[in-house]
Amino acid sequence: MNPVDLYMLAGIAITLIALYAALTRAHLFWKVLAINLMGTGIFLILLAAPSRRTPEIADPLPQAMVLTGIVVAVAATALALGIALRVIARSDLPFLPDGDEDDPDSPGSTGEASR
């Protein structure tokens, strides 16, 4: 196995572990961390996959895309943290409120009654 393949497989693993965490951790900060890590996994795939095809020349196009992606990811993370902090300021809890605030145990509620 070629070392570039190792990085590509790591990218797949990290993307999927982060996807699992983003969907199973209710805590908003871990959701933000998980979405950020999903991005880095995708970056690894984006960069490793083309260098398997043309090992003799580094492909600058995915490099430029990943560079742009890193900067956008920082901006998105900052915005997500700001929104999470608004949630905390409202409820004192780092969790998304369930639809119906009167009954936290009803996951499927649309919350029409509470407004």
Partner: peptide, 24 residues
Amino acid sequence: VRLGAPNIALAEAALGAGVTGALF
């Protein structure tokens, strides 16, 4: 760096680890 992308390594160290870590 190992993948031959020093341009990205520079940005990752400063942004991914540095600025994002500082944010958290």
